[in-house]
Design a protein around this nucleic acid. Sequence first.
DNA 1: GGAATAGTGTCTCTAAGACAGTATCTA
DNA 2: TAGATACTGTCTTAGAGACACTATTCC
Lengths: 231, 231
Amino acid sequence: MPKPSAEPSFPTVICTVDVVLMTLKDDALHVVLLTRKNAPFAGAPALPGGYIHAQEDRTAWDAAARVLRDKTGIVSPYLEQLATYSGADRDPRGWSASIVYYALISEELLPEGREGLLLAPVAALPALPFDHGEIVALAVERVRSKSQYSSLPVYLCGERMTLPRLQAVYEAVLGEPINKVSFRRKIDELGMLEPIEGELTSGAAHRPAQMYRLRESYRRALSVVPRGINS
Amino acid sequence: MPKPSAEPSFPTVICTVDVVLMTLKDDALHVVLLTRKNAPFAGAPALPGGYIHAQEDRTAWDAAARVLRDKTGIVSPYLEQLATYSGADRDPRGWSASIVYYALISEELLPEGREGLLLAPVAALPALPFDHGEIVALAVERVRSKSQYSSLPVYLCGERMTLPRLQAVYEAVLGEPINKVSFRRKIDELGMLEPIEGELTSGAAHRPAQMYRLRESYRRALSVVPRGINS
DNA sequence: GGAATAGTGTCTCTAAGACAGTATCTA
DNA sequence: TAGATACTGTCTTAGAGACACTATTCC
């Protein structure tokens, strides 16, 4: 077993994780930002992020989950690697590599009135420090892309949902209307939902909608269709 | 501007790049492996990889291109980030993060008889050190996935190609036959090829095929179709 | 009953695949 | 001319979208 310093060491890479946590508010995608407590850019809103703790985190995924939990109090049901942003110029502290994850959550599960936590609509994002603007853009593109052929948007809903609601969520994410008949055929094909027997929406002056829930096996795994949800 | 050591430092993350370089040989995907010169696993075939040189590499992409060029002599026309593998256990030297890139190249452009360079078929891969086996599997999946709806496989061909050859390349990558009429409709839709006037294959005992080349604007960018090449 | 939305049956139209025909080379 | 593969025209079929009809609630 060689010693760590058998090769010339290159210790100057700063290794961090960042998380793009997205939710749906007023039928528009929003990203969760946090007011930075430390320099650089102290006081500015930015993506939740932090150093990898080699003693504590088993993998970068664990680091991202820890950062998200500690800084926002959120445990997202979906947390996936997006990409790694790196380079000499992206952070004034030096050559850095940030392993970026993205996550989705229902608006209901967001903690209320937490200090320094804010929601920004991805369609009208404020200027962000580092390359966080570019990162959010890629995350949004990824979510749109995956939503075209998978069950990803269910993570933007709560535990239970109706088909009309789910269709509205898909339309909000994809930014285009979906044919109702086709959509229901596809959701059926995805096979991820099961009706909750006898449970219907109520209170509105029209026919109530059937309530559905995610099948157990799709609680943390995506379901996909070969030809896409829309078109 | 803060000093780099304003926060407690976590210098124990080893930051590297690895490259999964793939090519087509005998109509089967192969990956380029390199015999490791240094410990750990010296003497074993593994993915080309190395440390990020913060003084020299502007980004991790540059580091991957440098590693590929210096260790194999290859400059690939297509080099894209795949994912980052990280953790405490993947490298005996300690907590490491490897930013992995994948690349495609035509077999003709591979350097001949270079010391320590070998081609392994992805369908029958030898045991690889670190998590390189898992990495290659993901790279293959990515190439298959992208080939379903884009012009990615053209990077496995040389500068010029015929449609029957390109179809054979797609079929080799996707592992399934493609309807000839549909394939030609799709390639036409992709709009990336232009016929070379008057240039046909010759020598075979049958009708010659029209030679095509990549249009200038698609030399380093992919072209995509909304509904996929096959099915 | 009227208004509103949920859910379904069915026709149309687009596009993918099958198949067979014509074209053009070598031996 | 025979054999082989390149290329193309066209029919069939599967699936997506349009549209209209029925269902069920509250007022």
